[in-house]
Design a binder for these strands. Structure first.
Lengths: 120, 120, 120, 120
DNA sequence: GTGGTCTAGACCACC
DNA sequence: GTGGTCTAGACCACG
């Protein structure tokens, strides 16, 4: 596990997002152990407490489950996870679309921008 | 001038955005006075300091200008303002699109969601 | 706000429980501010982080809500809170009753013990 | 010997409790061998170390005794064991009753809940 | 080895 | 003043 942290946003929420995305992409499968708190923390050069907070919240959201003395395992598969990730990401996206509208962009221009952003 | 404050985001930035949007929509025109700090503060039930901060930053950005003893007047017109707002909103939008991609949405689904969000 | 911390159980969860109980008893009312993180922390001689964690979880559970720059206010009244507290306390209680049964106590004896514990 | 492990509580203490209850119910009698560490571990899908720890503590408490090369045998009989279990369970029960009181339950409601929990 | 909790203290944004 | 986030590092329980 490996990614670049963006210090302009809360690190713990970036971790949550990355884990969720990894599950959705099949990089982490149902029942598999995710990286240990200490491992992930050192591999992205972040304090273990920060990773622990992210994991704790993922547990609360039902995405992973603690295996005492062993680590954390992926709990739910797409069905439940998708809902959690979708809600988060969708809200952000809808707001962005409305902001574009309020800023005076046309629907056509926004559509073109989606494609452009998507591919590069 | 009135709107519902969303306590989950910085209030001062919501105020800034609203003022900018009002100008772009033509609700506030070049040279016109915007609501006084105290009026806006009481009408949206917010600390006057918060409104003052928003206005201070708008002044710094050249969007409005102080009229000592009178209030604040719109400085930039829609054409000039658009550029700054666009950049801000565009960045947010591109991030949102990429998040959708990472979350496993298809391009087609995203396109449909643009239309849906736009109209609803 | 003032209470004796029991170091044999997680402090943050004792804080959560105390706040909930205070609300249920009417000591803290809807809309009122609860003690600030720093105040409570110093008054019970505990690290602010510990109080912050408790408050953060209470927010997540919908019991209190953050007032940025001001503090935390009591959000829901009995209706919602009762559910949250009841679930917690009830689960604990049912387990205790079943443990008594498994340990060989009679129903009659348990009933008498309820009264005894209640009054003393 | 088999039961469902609850991953939200320490496994070794669940094992201890189960063994004690089995003795009190007469399922395990004085002098009888209890399941071997490896058997119990595999039958409830748990790390053998965990079972070993439970047995070690039961030995320390004088509930069972090691029979080198053979296994562990029940040492105390029901009468002697009862006292230790009772104390443990009683303390838990009293706390639960007080929590119910603090949560605003009435004595009457608690009494009804005892019966309800007792019967199912 | 794993996670869970806590302390101490820093820095930032917000009101 | 308020809370939000993060670091550093300790200690404990569990497997």
């Amino acid at each position: 596990m490996w990614f670049k942290v963006d210090f302009s946003k809360p690190i713990y929420s970036q971790i949550k997002k990355k884990i969720k995305e990894a599950i959705m992409k099949g990089e982490l499968k149902h029942g598999e152990l995710i990286p240990s708190v200490r491992d992930l923390a050192s591999s992205i050069s972040v304090n273990p407490n920060t990773v622990a907070r992210a994991y704790r919240e993922l547990v609360r959201e039902g995405v992973i489950e603690p295996r005492p003395g062993v680590g954390y395992a992926v709990k739910k598969n797409e069905a439940v996870l998708r809902k959690s990730l979708e809600n988060e990401v969708l809200r952000e996206f809808k707001n962005a679309v409305l902001s574009m509208k309020n800023a005076g962009f046309t629907l056509e221009r926004v559509m073109r921008l989606v494609e452009k952003s998507w591919n590069g």
